[in-house]
Design a protein around this nucleic acid. Sequence first.
DNA 1: AAAAAAG
Length: 490
Amino acid sequence: MNFADLGLSDELLQAVELAGYSEPTPIQAQAIPSVLMMRDLIGIAQTGTGKTAGFVLPMLDILAHGRRRALMPRSLILEPTRELAAQVAENFEKYGKNHDLKMALLIGGVQMGDQVKALTEGVDVLIATPGRLMDLFERGKILLTGCNLLVIDEADRMLDMGFIPDIETICAKLPANRQTLLFSATMPPPIKKLADKFLSNPKLIEVARPATTNVNIVQHKVNVSARKKRDVLRHLLQTDNVTTAIVFANRKTTVRDLAKSLKRDGFSAGEIHGDMDQPSRNAELQRFKDGDINILVASDVAARGLDVKGVSHVFNFDTPWHPDDYVHRIGRTGRGGATGRAFTLVAEEDAEAIANVEKLTGGPIPLFEIDGARAASSPTAEDQPAERGRGSRRAPRRGAKAAPEAPAHSAEAEPLPRAERPERAERPERAERPQRAPRRQREDTPVAASAPRSAPERAAPVAAQREAPSAPGEWNGPVPGFLHISALTA
DNA sequence: AAAAAAG
């Protein structure tokens, strides 16, 4: 199966080829022809399956015909979070480079002026979060009567976030005679009802099995007391060949404190959560994507859909209360055929949550024991995927520095510091300290002795993984032309 | 219990 067999135009095929893809993913192979035939579609799929390109590519083809009119966008894509909306916009830029199509990114947290201006001039596609879209609509800045192509992305997430009434309101403002595509990782009854109400004779495509069955993600839980969570996290960050990690916490305050603490300890860390203003959120995410930082501490704003290449590890500093979120969080790693590792720190307060997670994922998550240096497993070169073809031998990304490393778990691994010892004194020092955060010296926390620097080849496979081309639809580095999109929302 | 999204 080849992209050329799917009925896409030559301009699109060229953009796809330029992006480095030749073979469509299963969801693309199934979705693209149906969308081109103007059918309604239900896609049971998660991000990381190439879902985004699955609707962006045929939409571009459809939009290539017809003309835009002021205030009357021709198509609308709804996304649950601002970051996801921006990510879809990047895809439009990438694949639409041969088309003269205008888009507007309508998200909150940024000034309305440029968004309104774009609407006034006419856009072909709106990419929006529901709140800002409703706001602009109520202000009379948008007419949705010309919008005959609608994409509802991440519908189950929209449900979780209470957006379904908004979605219904928005659907009612669109022409009844339209094409609707709905994507969702799961199909809970309210989503099924929504689909029944707003889609007609949809083609059903199901490709993504739950991420928990993603064999590319090695999962572990670590029993730990609440007060030792930070120590265990630091230990894992140092000893598990972490190149790039997302650390999820349940509360925004935890995210903030933890990021601060990691930075203080010299880790190259950043943070993202909903209490930050949008420019800061964008900046932190970009720093992470660019490799300026290799650890992102995040709330569940980043749990779903975010597509950053080469995330070697996901850490759940807290077990998510909602078991579905566990699946989404760990799905940030092990993407595009790469191997990922997911650790969940389980304290007493997480007991109930982890039980629910294990019920959902269908079995106990293997315990990873640290105290006593008894590691259940450690990443080795064999764990890493072999070369995935397609030019994966580019030089390592400039900014993608590895985390401070120590040898992988083995009999000689350092045990965790014991509670009664001065906690930092026992920790192996990071030989290659991420320079960005100047360490604050404190006399009671001496810099620990240096751990042997692990051989560079240990980290190499994961670094290569970060560089390997992703499937279409995945985030694949900054898109040069994207500047003008961000300018639209600056 | 939280987080997200409009401000």
